[in-house]
């Protein structure tokens, strides 16, 4: 796992495992903005370690650009979203069998979704004829964390 600071945002990339050590990046306490868009995978020890560091450093995290690997953990490990965590945006991977195009939709808090409210979302089709873009995720389970998190 790597963390790089750019324009006040901490960009996290790679695999979050038990070696996750947020203590080495000079993170401040309080509100910290993490862009998780380049997180590839997370293992069970990595989730626990991440939560431990967030608590230890007294961080109130703001997560943005969360990929599927992260959203799956939001849904499974509720402590991931403790400490007044906020999710600013998350990704929906999608694919169109007709044109063979892979697309990532970004859903933003306050725009496409509101915390505490059930999300009904429909993927926007592209302008090509016969576009049959379809999400790679099951919305019912994927959006579960949105309903269970307070705004």
């Amino acid at each position: 796992m790597e963390v790089q600071l750019k324009d006040g945002i901490y960009f996290v990339s790679g695999d979050i495992t038990e070696t996750c050590d947020l203590g080495g990046f000079g993170l401040p306490s309080g509100s910290v903005h993490f862009d998780l868009g380049s997180v590839r995978t997370i293992n069970s020890c990595g989730v626990r370690e991440w939560i431990t560091w967030i608590n230890k450093l007294k961080i109130t995290p703001i997560y943005s650009n969360c990929p599927q690997s992260v959203v799956m953990q939001f849904n499974m490990v509720k402590e991931f979203l403790s400490n007044n965590s906020k999710v600013e945006s998350f990704q929906i991977p999608a694919y169109c069998e007709n044109c063979g195009e892979q697309k990532i939709y970004l859903l933003r808090s306050g725009k496409e979704f509101q915390f505490g409210k059930k999300l009904e979302y429909e993927l926007k089709k592209c302008e090509k004829d016969g576009c049959c873009i379809e999400s790679d995720v099951d919305f019912e389970s994927y959006f579960y964390f949105i309903e269970s998190l307070k705004s």
Binding site: N43, M76, K78
Partner: peptide, 24 residues
């Protein structure tokens, strides 16, 4: 029912999180 599965997982996961991740 996927939603109920997630709820049950959250309630019971604890030390078995890794196994849950595999099963899912």
């Amino acid at each position: 029912e996927k939603k109920s599965m997630i709820r049950l997982q959250q309630e019971a996961a604890g030390a078995g999180l890794g196994l849950f991740m595999v099963l899912e």
